[in-house]
Write a protein that binds this DNA or RNA. Sequence first.
DNA 1: GTGCCACTTCAAGTCGACTTGAAGTCAAGG
DNA 2: CCTTGACTTCAAGTCGACTTGAAGTGGCAC
Lengths: 154, 154
Amino acid sequence: MDIAEVVRRSGVPASTLRYYEEKGLIESVGRQGLRRTFDPRVLERLALIALGSAAGFSLDETARMFAADGRPRIDRRMLSAKARELTRTIRQLTAMRDGLRHAAVCPAPSHLECPTFRRLLGAAASGVRRKKAASAKSAPPPARTRAAATRARR
Amino acid sequence: MDIAEVVRRSGVPASTLRYYEEKGLIESVGRQGLRRTFDPRVLERLALIALGSAAGFSLDETARMFAADGRPRIDRRMLSAKARELTRTIRQLTAMRDGLRHAAVCPAPSHLECPTFRRLLGAAASGVRRKKAASAKSAPPPARTRAAATRARR
DNA sequence: GTGCCACTTCAAGTCGACTTGAAGTCAAGG
DNA sequence: CCTTGACTTCAAGTCGACTTGAAGTGGCAC
């Protein structure tokens, strides 16, 4: 497969593929002249990488999940840890969403006077030390800002 | 209040406070010589900003939630939209977490042979066209835990 | 009155994950 | 054989949210 086909079948831009190769996340099996040739299994690999990203792993972390031979070498402890982290994040986001929902319909004259809202504020101010979960959605307002806007098909 | 006190009471670094002021997210009420003086209400404002960030709003979006007089001018439609977005994200992350959990205990010889894992892979691959992190940041007591929050630091 | 040092400004740097642009190469169709 | 244009490399740019560093200022304890 040449790079164009990988792009077509994976949806990942060529520049990203080259970047991934440079970082050692994928590899090409040879060249036709200058042009890279890929083994179809690269598609599986890309799916794995997408999975890692979606789960909140950095590319470096994801890279560590492959053995030298290219087979996934998944660290179960790492997975469990990430699962727990996701659980925390999910709990956080859920609270946040409920708060937003409430705020959207709250009848209090000012949100600052609404106990529910104040509780949310407190939570945000103190407890929120969670980080980095990933996945899903790019915000409409700043249309061109997000790399994802471009990535999402172009 | 001088900046040191705001730092102490909010946990937000002075550099961040200056940055926020520059961006118009907060304001100082005056100066003692060169030194900024803040109204205590800035603490509430900072909590609001933290809340916005935790809910996945960018600083610019958060800024739009304040009226000229500094009162929160919360756009209910925006809140609802964000709440829905969070719901999607939560659903995504939940699926992801369940997948990770499963992968961590899956007995299949290779994850690639496990149907559950393959299903996950498919989901990740198809989800490649959307991305954005809803994350939470913090102003934690431990002075520079902020760095930790932004994972992979220097 | 004087020295310390917390504060100030402003420019530049950082971080991750890519994208973009310029300039060059070359496989393949005509 | 020649042109075309998809591919290549490499350096630099982007984006958001800050941090860092150098150089300067001035409040306040002594």
